[in-house]
Simulated scan of single mutants.
Amino acid sequence: MTDPRPAGSNDGMTFAFSKTFVRDLDAMAKFYEDVLGLIPFNRHQDAMFGRAIDEITYQASYAGGPALTLIAYVEGEAPAAGEAVQGFVTQDLDAVCARATAAGGAVPDPIREVPEFGLRVAFVIDPEGHINEVIQMLNH
């Protein structure tokens, strides 16, 4: 089937993934797998804004397509339902962070490298406070 929607972006950006905050990661994983047929790709523990997180990323449903990640704070309450993290891939993470701050956004934590996934990452906050995770793949 041919997709009639136009495609494209500026500055080499690619929308790659979305993260949805959940309260009970294992229960929600079962729901998304059993009801929506998603296939887990990996599970990863890390930190976001100084808080421990646990997340499960699902395979894209088609080659090159975006992926969904379910994410939970290890301790404490999740954000209100409806908040999500959009994911983008870039070839120049430093330039994206500079554009974000120049446009009234924020990059609250320094760019960091995540060698086990072969990437650099930064969280870009838009002027209303919404979270965008931007990654740059490392060329090793």
Rank of each mutant, 00 (worst) to 15 (best):
residue 3 D to T: 04
residue 3 D to G: 01
residue 4 P to M: 07
residue 4 P to Q: 07
residue 6 P to Q: 13
residue 6 P to N: 00
residue 7 A to P: 01
residue 8 G to C: 06
residue 10 N to Q: 13
residue 11 D to M: 14
residue 12 G to R: 09
residue 14 T to D: 10
residue 14 T to L: 12
residue 15 F to D: 05
residue 15 F to Y: 14
residue 15 F to S: 02
residue 16 A to S: 15
residue 16 A to M: 09
residue 18 S to I: 14
residue 18 S to G: 10
residue 18 S to V: 13
residue 19 K to Q: 12
residue 19 K to E: 15
residue 19 K to N: 13
residue 19 K to R: 11
residue 20 T to P: 00
residue 20 T to Q: 12
residue 21 F to E: 05
residue 21 F to L: 05
residue 21 F to A: 05
residue 22 V to F: 01
residue 22 V to C: 02
residue 22 V to Y: 07
residue 23 R to W: 08
residue 24 D to E: 15
residue 24 D to P: 04
residue 24 D to W: 08
residue 24 D to V: 06
residue 27 A to D: 06
residue 29 A to H: 15
residue 31 F to S: 03
residue 33 E to K: 02
residue 35 V to I: 14
residue 35 V to N: 04
residue 35 V to F: 04
residue 35 V to Y: 02
residue 36 L to Q: 07
residue 36 L to G: 11
residue 36 L to Y: 15
residue 37 G to K: 10
residue 38 L to Y: 08
residue 39 I to K: 15
residue 41 F to Q: 14
residue 42 N to F: 08
residue 42 N to Y: 15
residue 44 H to T: 15
residue 44 H to A: 09
residue 44 H to G: 10
residue 44 H to I: 02
residue 46 D to G: 10
residue 46 D to R: 04
residue 47 A to R: 09
residue 47 A to Y: 01
residue 48 M to F: 14
residue 49 F to M: 14
residue 49 F to C: 10
residue 50 G to V: 07
residue 51 R to E: 13
residue 51 R to C: 02
residue 52 A to F: 07
residue 55 E to I: 01
residue 55 E to A: 10
residue 56 I to K: 08
residue 57 T to W: 06
residue 58 Y to E: 09
residue 58 Y to T: 06
residue 58 Y to C: 04
residue 59 Q to M: 11
residue 61 S to V: 14
residue 61 S to I: 10
residue 62 Y to M: 00
residue 63 A to M: 07
residue 64 G to K: 00
residue 64 G to M: 04
residue 64 G to A: 06
residue 65 G to K: 06
residue 66 P to V: 11
residue 66 P to W: 08
residue 66 P to F: 10
residue 67 A to H: 08
residue 69 T to W: 04
residue 71 I to P: 03
residue 73 Y to V: 08
residue 75 E to P: 00
residue 77 E to G: 08
residue 77 E to P: 03
residue 78 A to I: 05
residue 78 A to Q: 14
residue 80 A to D: 07
residue 81 A to S: 11
residue 81 A to E: 13
residue 83 E to C: 04
residue 85 V to G: 11
residue 85 V to N: 01
residue 87 G to M: 10
residue 87 G to K: 01
residue 87 G to N: 04
residue 87 G to E: 03
residue 88 F to Y: 15
residue 88 F to H: 01
residue 89 V to Q: 09
residue 90 T to G: 02
residue 91 Q to N: 07
residue 92 D to F: 00
residue 92 D to W: 07
residue 92 D to K: 07
residue 93 L to F: 09
residue 96 V to R: 09
residue 98 A to Q: 01
residue 98 A to K: 07
residue 102 A to L: 11
residue 104 G to V: 01
residue 107 V to Y: 04
residue 107 V to D: 08
residue 108 P to L: 05
residue 108 P to Y: 12
residue 110 P to N: 00
residue 112 R to P: 00
residue 112 R to E: 12
residue 113 E to G: 00
residue 113 E to S: 15
residue 114 V to G: 04
residue 114 V to D: 09
residue 114 V to R: 12
residue 118 G to F: 04
residue 118 G to W: 12
residue 119 L to I: 09
residue 119 L to R: 15
residue 119 L to M: 13
residue 120 R to K: 15
residue 122 A to F: 00
residue 122 A to D: 06
residue 122 A to L: 10
residue 123 F to K: 03
residue 125 I to G: 03
residue 126 D to F: 02
residue 127 P to V: 05
residue 129 G to I: 11
residue 130 H to R: 12
residue 130 H to T: 06
residue 131 I to A: 06
residue 131 I to W: 11
residue 133 E to P: 03
residue 134 V to C: 02
residue 134 V to H: 06
residue 135 I to R: 05
residue 136 Q to D: 03
residue 138 L to C: 13
residue 139 N to S: 14
